[in-house]
């Protein structure tokens, strides 16, 4: 069996992200593994989950507390070399998605991202063409870095174990992380941990039965729903595009909300699509939603039928007005 390294990072607060335990569990199924953690409080974080690890490494210190390519890549390279692992399981966060492909190149290896399943013989599953087809593949190149899609694997309980061996890394960088920009709490409409994803389609800004558009009302209904249910808001590409072109649009939408074709593929337990006739969310952005419902005026909509569990043939405005009273 090839040597495996599980590579994790901590958050700015020094904790492991939720998906870290998923990565450990996925590796444990395959075989024995080393553990390496990068970031603030890395050594303590590593020890908190190191029960199953053969060897434990950590790179920490002020320079490595920040999510930044140059430092993360150097730290990952050092741990990979210290372990000598042939296959590296890592958490597919934005931080590692940024840093580890370059590390693979540096080590003359290869890297796969967005992995959703791994077979015992190390064939990995990932999606191509914007989640429209799934491939099962393997590589001969080593080291092979596998970035696991958060939410795609079962999680293991945290079991503390041996203390980490600290690795000293020096690296020069011209980049400083200066902070974050987040929407105000009352404008927060992207909630990755929400139970429900509400997908708003371009129909919300189109002419309604009376021949007029009702975009302000649509905006109110959607925002109110999202706030009351604490759901996450996604949007179809066409609706987001409209906002870039100065048309009558929902004011709070940005490309960050986009799901499907050229957006994210969020993982939520439930999804409710509204006004999306003929748009991609039904097909693509929904791929990782377990329980899907759609409100749509066209019963024959080929993009809902066979894709949603329940299709309500109704006017989304009317249904959302009623929902507003109930929630």
């Amino acid at each position: 069996m090839e040597k495996i390294l599980v590579l994790l990072h901590t958050t700015d607060e020094g904790a492991l992200p939720k998906a870290a335990l998923e990565t450990i569990a996925a590796a444990a199924v395959i075989g024995a593994y080393d553990l390496g953690v990068i970031g603030a409080n890395a050594a303590a974080a590593a020890q908190s989950v190191s029960a199953g690890a053969a060897a434990v490494f950590a790179v920490e210190g002020e320079q490595f507390a920040q999510s930044r390519y140059a430092t993360d890549a150097a730290a990952a390279e050092a741990i990979a070399k210290a372990s000598g692992a042939a296959v590296i399981f890592a958490t597919g966060t934005m931080r590692f998605n940024r840093a580890l492909p370059g590390v693979a190149c540096r080590l003359n290896g290869a890297c796969e991202t967005h992995i959703v399943a791994i077979e015992p013989d190390l064939k990995v599953h990932r999606w191509y063409y914007r989640q429209r087809m799934e491939a099962t593949l393997s590589r001969a190149a080593r080291p092979w870095i596998l970035l696991l899609e958060p939410g795609a694997f079962e999680s293991a309980p945290a079991a503390p174990g041996a203390a980490a061996t600290p690795i000293a890394v020096t690296v020069e960088t011209r980049t400083t992380v200066t902070g974050y920009h987040a929407p105000n709490a009352d404008q927060q409409t992207i909630r990755p941990d929400a139970q429900l994803l509400l997908v708003a389609g371009a129909g919300w800004t189109k002419k309604q039965k009376d021949g007029a558009t009702h975009t302000p009302e649509a905006a109110g209904l959607i925002l109110n729903f999202v706030q009351k249910t604490q759901s996450s808001l996604g949007s179809s590409k066409s609706l987001v595009d409209l906002s870039g072109e100065g048309q009558s649009v929902l004011p709070f939408l940005s490309h960050l909300h986009q799901v499907g074709q050229t957006g994210s593929s969020p993982r939520h337990r439930k999804g409710l699509a509204t006004c999306c006739h003929g748009e991609e969310p039904h097909v693509v952005g929904w791929r990782f939603i377990n329980d899907r419902r759609a409100i749509n005026l066209d019963a024959a909509c080929g993009w809902s039928r066979g894709k949603a569990d329940v299709l309500y043939v109704a006017d989304s405005f009317e249904v959302m007005r009623e929902l507003e009273k109930l929630l």
Partner: peptide
């Protein structure tokens, strides 16, 4: 409609 060849006019536009 069979969703394959016989589809609504709007789905013919889209599909």
């Amino acid at each position: 409609y069979d969703g394959q060849i016989l589809v609504s006019h709007q789905d013919a536009l889209l599909m």
